[in-house]
């Protein structure tokens, strides 16, 4: 591709091809940050600058009230993930970052599904919920709300199964994660 500043005409395909590669490997980053104003913006801003799409993002307190944990999942090229983690380390409010290995990590997400369930289909929907150990937390005449926890994949599977019944709406928290075994995340 030609250097900016030269006359060479660029095709749209070339521009797209020059965009960042995706490895397809999902990354779960667990980031401990000082509970300071703007900390989250600094982090998400950095991802935006480097051209990463954050798939999910969850923020919450830790056992230490001055520190929050940000868990985010994204899809990225290995090389650039490395660059992003290094850049994140430079943020003064960031205390610790871990790029969690999927096999050594417990990751869970919570989701709420509002599903059409009038007379005929209700029993079948409830059966699916049971298989997935989903809790039914609200029932109305035509719908019910199911609460599911599990890995992203489990929740995706649940969604696929209940969609045919009529999925009215859905809300997901994004994954949070913690390292298996004794090691600190």
């Amino acid at each position: 591709m030609g250097e900016p500043g030269t006359k060479e005409l660029l095709s749209l395909e070339e521009l797209e091809a020059a965009g960042s590669f995706r490895t397809g490997r999902k990354h779960i980053l667990s980031i401990l940050v000082e509970n300071k104003p703007g900390a989250l913006t600094r982090i998400t801003g950095l991802f935006a600058r480097r051209g990463f799409n954050i798939d999910t993002l969850a923020v919450g307190p830790t056992d230490d009230e001055t520190i929050s944990r940000i868990t985010l999942t994204l899809d990225g090229a290995v090389q650039s993930i490395d660059q992003v983690t290094k850049q994140l380390h430079k943020l003064v409010n960031v205390l610790k970052i871990r790029d969690l290995e999927p096999t050594e990590t417990m990751a869970r997400e919570l989701a709420l599904f509002k599903i059409s369930a009038d007379g005929g289909s209700r029993a079948e929907v409830m059966q699916v919920c049971e298989i997935f150990r989903a809790k039914i937390v609200d029932v109305s005449k035509r719908t019910l709300v199911a609460e599911v926890t599990g890995t992203q994949e489990k929740i995706d599977a649940f969604e696929r199964l209940v969609r045919p019944f009529g999925l009215v709406e859905m809300a997901r928290t994004g994954e949070i994660a913690i390292a298996r075994g004794r090691a600190e995340t």
């Binding site: 703007g38 913006t41 600094r42 801003g45 950095l46 600058r49 430079k90 943020l91 003064v92």
Partner: peptide, 8 residues
């Protein structure tokens, strides 16, 4: 200034 500071 967030993207162009070392810290703020």
């Amino acid at each position: 200034t967030m993207p162009i500071v070392k810290h703020s």
